[in-house]
Amino acid sequence: MILLKLTQNELYKIFSLIRSYIGFVFFTIIIPLILWGYGLGTTHIQGQIESAVSEMFFVEGSPTNGFTAAYFVMNFFYVHIPFLIALVGGDIFAGEQANGTFRIYATRPISRLSIFISKTLATMIYTLIFMLYFGLLTLGLGLIWHGGGDMLVFHQGILILEGGDAMRRFILAYGFSFMNMALVSAIAIFFSTMVRNAIGPVIGTMAIIIFSLMISTIPLEVFKNIQPYVFTTYFTNWEKVFYDPIPWIDLLRGFSFIVANLFMFLGIAFIIFRRKDILS
């Protein structure tokens, strides 16, 4: 019961901050713009795809429809979404210390574990809402704007996914993306417990992500050996749900690695927070 109330408090605090809406505003502007640009940019290739594919298959709807538009948009936001997510996660502990509000909050007869869990839960709920909004805008708006139909996936040839199947796979893809962003939030929380200002955790989180992204994407032999141990390697796993057959083992391995990292960062964050002297 107390956890519920504490989480409710944390959500109330998160959504009373203007910074919590930056990501929503950003997506509300940029995604329709991309979808509009996508519509313009694909008009000339649509005919080519249709003529090439129609000799072999019957494709229902436009090949450059809402599904492919959403797929196209999702590919762009590896670096941007973590930054927007870290704005909230990075502030969750450090912001209270910087403002001095922890002095009141932490002196109540509540355990630090409860405070930690409630803040973590609220951050994860925010992340989920954020990713749902992202999904709604990319897929929802994409389908309204560019229509539905079959989805064309170019992976080791051309794969045509029937509309219903494509939708199910998108839900799965958003699920994997949410787990990636939950890990980003956990890293931001980890940094947030260590410092007393909200800027540090955002920079720290982004530094880790950019560094890991470089290791996991630079095609050098020396990096290839360590890539399986870098969490960003699995950030692109959502793409694999559109393969045929779906490589479940690969997906499960990546998912487990992400979850393990998430709990590792949260575990260390809790140890730091529990031992922390609140001096300001």
């Binding site: 605090k13 009373s16 403002n99 001095g100 509000t101 002095r103 009141i104 007869p109």
Partner: peptide
């Protein structure tokens, strides 16, 4: 017990 440690700071917004 309740406390007011140092100056009182609140959620300003």
């Amino acid at each position: 017990m309740s406390t007011l440690v140092d100056r009182a700071d609140f959620y300003k917004n």
